[in-house]
Structure formats: structure tokens, C-alpha cells
Design a protein around this nucleic acid. Structure first.
Lengths: 165, 165
DNA sequence: CCCTATTATTTCGCACGCGAAACATCTGCC
DNA sequence: GGCAGATGTTTCGCGTGCGAAATAATAGGG
């Protein structure tokens, strides 16, 4: 029989399940809606995210972009390929370091970005903004706590995989 | 400047952003980790989810399954194709209604499901279970509130698209 | 200066994930 | 009984999304 370290205590299981369920719902539904809205301006969800990101913070290298939208480089390469095909962005090789590629909005891309009122995860944002300030702070505090805990687990995991001498 | 109907009030924007950021982090990181763990038993993330679901609630039609794992039928068809290829599940046409297909675990599938201690979204579950009971209740209450709000927006959206005559 | 390790990006193969259209079956209504 | 519309599933095409390997360029030690 395999080793089973964590195993969630049964007395809190229902609450945990419900919370997970709620987070899954919020994430998938918001994502779906955003995608649908993006489609009305001929963009995909990730493309909208990239467009808005570049509009907000300016040119980014492909790695910086991947990190910010939480995707692998190989994924972003594909997204940028398709956006370049649509003339929404261009790739510009850096002069200082010829390995890095900067992604820049074209005029067309910038124009479209300006014209779009849709932010990624709109529905979630709208729903959140109906909360009272104390609720919002409570929520943020608890989520931050969970995130820190997840982060520590992730790091431990990563370390475990790395040290395979 | 274009018309921007919803536009989140600027005074709460930073909080909203941080909350969205946190939820995105929790979701993507948990998903990634689960996928990685699933890989150690030669399953993908969705396949693990399906396996555990069938183990927990028994046979399901393809539609029921899609609904429960929050995916389109066409997506689940593909997942089941691959799982059938690996002899983890079988399709069984219903006798009462020959349109519906029941997905059943094979012996092999059931055995593997029993042997796996990994639940979908493990990391998130583990992190959640470190919260105090009041924190958990607060969190659930607020998330439920948000989810209801999202749901009402989604429904309004759906109605708007349906009535197109 | 050169060789090696590192870093940035791309390529490849595969598994989702979706919407639209096709297909099969069922239901109700005549 | 027959047919029109509804329902369950699959097919198709396309866009992510990932990890591993390939490629290109830089940095650092000798």
C-alpha cells in the first residue's frame, strides 16, 4: 500500500470540498465568460490577456510575459505566433542580448487594446466589487494565507524533484 | 475614450486585483501540481479526476460526467477515448435510451483508483485544511456570495444571447 | 581565447477544451 | 405510423497548455 501522508481530516472534509468547488466554479465560469466576450472582438482569452498586459506595462520579453500570465514559454510562443499572424504584435530581437525577444504591440494592437473595455476575468472582478470593504479584506487575508501555504508546498515539491543525485 | 459600462471603482481596484491574482495563483498552481502527481501513476489531470469521480459516485453517462467535471461533452468524449484506450473505463450503451452511453470503470481502472491517494486539487485541499474553522466558514460564506453573483451575471448573459430574434 | 554551463526561445508531440456541425435516437403531436 | 423538434454523443478544426529536446547566444573559468 502506498504512503499517504497528508489525508485531510474527515471532520473538515465537507467544508474543504465546498470551498474547492466554489473556487473551481469561479475560475472556470469567469474564464468561460471572458473568452466569450473576447470572441466578440475576434480575440481568444489568452490573446486578450496579452494585449491588455502589454498595454498596461509596455513591451515585455517573451519570458517576462510567460511569467506574468503564468504559462510556459512554449505556450506563449504559440500565442504570440498567432497574434503576430494577425498583426496585433511584433517580435523585436534585443540588441544587448540577442537571445531575448521583445513583444511589442503594433498600432493595430494598441488601438484594439484601447478600444476594449473587457478585462481578463471580468465577471469575477465585477462580482468581487459588490463585496463590502471588510469582506474584501477578510477574503484577501485568508486567500493570502492559503497561497503562502500552497507556495511552501510547491517549493518543497520542487526541491524534492531537483535533488535526485 | 470609449464607453466603459461596468468599470470597477478605482478605490477598490487594488484589492480586487490582488484577490483575482490570488485565485488565479491558487487555481493554476494546484492544477499544475495535481497534474504532476497524476503523472507519477501514468494519468493526466482530467483522467485522475474522472477516475476518482467514477470511483466515488459510480457509473455516469457522458453528459452527467461532463457536467460534474465542468467540461463540454466534446471534451469528455476525447478524455474517455484515451481512457478507454488504456482500458481504464468502458463505454456501455444504455438499453432504455440508446442515445446515452454509460462510462464504467474497468477492474483495472477501479484498482488504480483505489490505489491512488491523490485527489484532484490536492495542494489546495491541504492548504485549506490548515485554516481554522471560523476562517474556513468565513471564506466559504464570502465565496458563496461571489459565486451567486457570478451566477446571476452568467444567466443574464445567457438570456441575452439566446433571445436574438 | 576556448570550452562549458547557463539562459532565452523555439520545436515537437500529445492532451485538453471549446463551439459548430453531424449523427443517432427519442418524444410528442398529428 | 410518420414526421418535426428535442436530446445525447461524436466529429472536426482550432487554440491553448505542457514537458522534453533542439537551437541560439551569453557568461565564466581556466
Amino acid at each position: 500500500m502506498p504512503c499517504v501522508p497528508p489525508a485531510i481530516p474527515t471532520d473538515i472534509k465537507p467544508e474543504v470540498d465546498q470551498i474547492v468547488e466554489a473556487i473551481l466554479y469561479l475560475y472556470t465560469e469567469s474564464r468561460r465568460l471572458t473568452k466569450e466576450l473576447a470572441r466578440s472582438v475576434d480575440l481568444t482569452g489568452p490573446q486578450l490577456t496579452v494585449l491588455k498586459m502589454l498595454e498596461g506595462v509596455g513591451d515585455l520579453s517573451l519570458s517576462e510575459l510567460s511569467e506574468r500570465i503564468r504559462a510556459q514559454n512554449s505556450t506563449v510562443t504559440g500565442i504570440i505566433d498567432r497574434m503576430e499572424r494577425e498583426s496585433l504584435v511584433v517580435r523585436a530581437r534585443s540588441n544587448e542580448d540577442k537571445r531575448v525577444v521583445y513583444i511589442k504591440l503594433t498600432d493595430k494592437g494598441a488601438r484594439i487594446a484601447r478600444g476594449i473595455a473587457i478585462e481578463p476575468m471580468v465577471v469575477l472582478r465585477d462580482a468581487l466589487s459588490t463585496l463590502s470593504m471588510p469582506e474584501m479584506r477578510d477574503l484577501l487575508k485568508i486567500l493570502t494565507k492559503i497561497a503562502r501555504r500552497v507556495q511552501s508546498i510547491v517549493q518543497r515539491e520542487a526541491a524534492g524533484n531537483g535533488n535526485k543525485e
